[in-house]
């Protein structure tokens, strides 16, 4: 059961369609996200990582091809079923509100609550567990605009955890974090995939760390999008295709980028 596929992208092309004009960013992408895997999505700035993530989470439509969640096309899926299977952490700013950290994390329970959104004891337990895992319990009563960007990042991750889905997709979750918190977040994601069989896909620019910790990686270059294990990418020399710059070279021995 270890290799069970949760989400699958079949020959999809991604981009924007505005009226009849279509801008295709990348095409012919095949991906499969399996249970218990920590998967890192890497690529240069502006290559379309966010668009890819938005497309496979169903926020944006594919130009061609289909995205299957547990075998059903994501766009034919009932929104509630989708919400119980897939949670997201996005890069977009939150609109102004008075939400406290606890309330924000508790919104993750919405796919399970009744028509008015009343939290049961189970819901509250899940919320508290998510806050404990992300080490934000002490912030519970703070307003979400009173905490730092790094703390807010963790709160949003806690919200996704509270949603309790087999698949979590995060868009640049480590952006606002310092080295210490980056490492602890990566370790948390790793731990979650190992202990709870969740599949976690995240995009990041911390390639060194991603190579060390993730089970699989997806590399996005202007030409292709490929998914493989980090050690295979290293032996194939794929990391050198990442940035089209002669001054950045990937050192296969050390497993990191060097500037020459």
């Amino acid at each position: 059961m270890k290799n069970e596929i949760i989400l699958q992208a079949l020959k999809i092309s991604i981009g924007y369609s505005h009226k009849k004009e279509k801008t295709i960013i990348a095409s012919n992408i095949d991906l499969s996200l399996r249970k218990g895997k920590l998967i890192a999505l890497i690529g240069a700035n502006g290559i379309g990582k966010s668009t890819l993530l938005k497309t496979i989470t169903g926020i944006q439509k594919t130009i061609t091809g289909t995205v299957l969640l547990n075998g059903t096309s994501i766009h034919n899926l009932d929104s509630l079923i989708l919400a119980q299977n897939l949670s997201v952490v996005l890069t977009e700013k939150l609109p102004p509100s008075n939400l406290t950290v606890f309330e924000l994390v508790a919104l993750g329970r919405q796919p399970y609550t009744n028509w008015i959104g009343k939290l049961t004891d189970l819901d509250i337990a899940k919320v508290e567990e998510a806050m404990l895992l992300t080490q934000i319990s002490h912030l519970a009563t703070k307003k979400h605009f009173e905490i730092s960007d790094g703390q807010l990042q963790k709160v949003l991750i806690a919200r996704a955890l509270a949603q309790d889905t087999p698949l979590i997709i995060l868009d640049e979750p480590t952006t606002h974090l310092d080295l210490l918190h980056k490492v602890s977040l990566f370790k948390l994601l790793k731990k979650l995939t190992q202990e709870t069989e969740k599949c976690i896909l995240f995009s990041t620019h911390d390639i060194d760390m991603a190579i060390q910790l993730s089970d699989e990686m997806i590399i996005m270059t202007p030409e292709t999008v490929i998914q493989d294990e980090p050690c295979n990418f290293i032996s194939k020399g794929s990391f050198n295709t990442l940035f089209n710059d002669e001054h950045i070279i990937f050192d296969q021995e050390k497993g990191k980028f060097l500037i020459v």
Partner: peptide, 23 residues
Amino acid sequence: LISVKPLNSLLLGENYAKSLGMN
């Protein structure tokens, strides 16, 4: 009154609201 729950999820913005199962 029946919109109370969707309104709460809209506090996180449109995309998050959709990801929370809101129609």
